[in-house]
Structures are given as C-alpha cells and as structure tokens.
C-alpha cells in the first residue's frame, strides 16, 4: 500500500473535484509526502484494538416521530443558484 500508487487524477474524479494540470502535479507530490508520513501508523500493532468512531460513545439516539415546524419553502429556496417555480434547476439528467 505504498503512497507511490496514489493516482491523484483518479481520486480527484472520485471526489468530484476538477483540477488543473498544475494542481494535479502539485497535489500529487504533496499528497505523496503526506501519505508517506501516515505510514508511521503501520508500525503499531492494532490487531486487538477496537476502532473509535466517536469519542463519546453514543448508540441509536432517537426521537419521537412527530411532525415539527420546518423552514418555509421560500426560505429554503432562498440560496438556490438557479430556480423556477420553487424548484431547483439542474442540467438534464435523462436522455
């Protein structure tokens, strides 16, 4: 799992971030160094350690399933980059 197999173009696409050729080159080198630094963790034996997802253990926080007041429609749409008739406008998805 060496950092050398890190393909910045492929991962940037997974992350849905367009990069310029310059950015690809610079980020590729920097992230290679950073991943090299992460290899430090491989020196520890963690085979018998449980993973921590949250520092304060919480399980299944629930609430009663009741209707509550929410943002008015026009307030929720207020920051939309493009809208018509109270709907978000997006590029065509289906052919």
């Amino acid at each position: 799992m060496a950092a050398s197999d890190f393909n910045v173009k492929y991962v940037a696409h997974l992350a849905r971030v367009q990069l310029s050729p310059d950015e690809e080159q610079k980020l590729g080198t920097q992230l290679g160094h950073i991943l090299g630094f992460m290899d430090k963790l491989k020196t520890l034996d963690v085979s018998h350690v449980e993973a921590t997802a949250h520092a304060v253990p919480t399980v299944n926080v629930t609430r009663t399933d009741e209707t509550q007041a929410s943002l008015p429609h026009d307030e929720a749409m207020r920051n939309a980059p493009k809208q018509t008739n109270g709907l978000f406008i997006v590029p065509k998805i289906v052919e």
Binding site: M1, L31, L41, A53
Partner: peptide
C-alpha cells in the same frame, strides 16, 4: 482540495483498512 482528495483516498476501496480503520484504532489507543 488537498484534504478532500486525501480523505477520499483513505476511505476508498482497497485503502480503507490500511488508513482509515487503522487510524480509528490508533484513536482508541
């Protein structure tokens, strides 16, 4: 961008166990 790409990589298939899961275990320690 650097952190989103780094984060996407450590969560991606094939690298999740080596990076993310291992880091969560070290977090326990």
């Amino acid at each position: 961008k650097r952190r989103i790409i780094l984060g996407t990589y450590v969560l991606s298939s094939g690298y999740y166990d080596a990076y993310y899961l291992r880091a969560q275990k070290v977090r326990t320690l």
